[in-house]
């Protein structure tokens, strides 16, 4: 029980419903934007919206905002590894 209460953070139903509505709104937004052709900007905007959506999911649904900061550190470490792979691959592919 003691192990539990220290990282337990019971929040109400409402924050989740608000986030869900925001996520649905962002989905509709990204689909509407895709109807117009902005060239390469289209993919950039779509990715920015996807990143915003994933931040909401990770922080609220996956509780990272309320949990120990160790988990946040884990995620950042994994993302840095992924980013390094991405940047090196991108420089190779784009400037070959």
């Amino acid at each position: 029980m003691s192990a539990h209460s220290e990282n337990e953070h019971v929040i109400g139903y409402m924050p989740y419903i608000t986030i869900w509505l925001t996520l649905i709104g962002l989905t509709i937004l990204t689909v509407s934007i895709s109807l117009f052709d902005f060239g390469t900007l289209t993919i950039i905007v779509a990715m920015i919206i996807a990143i915003i959506k994933s931040i909401f999911v990770i922080n609220i649904f996956m509780h990272i905002k309320y949990d120990s900061k160790v988990f946040l550190g884990f995620i950042i470490a994994a993302l840095v590894i992924l980013l390094v792979c991405l940047v090196f691959t991108a420089t190779d592919v784009f400037f070959r």
Binding site: T30, V31, D37, T42, A50
Partner: peptide, 8 residues
């Protein structure tokens, strides 16, 4: 979803 469906 955006990477496969929304590239028009």
């Amino acid at each position: 979803f955006p990477l496969f469906y929304l590239i028009h």
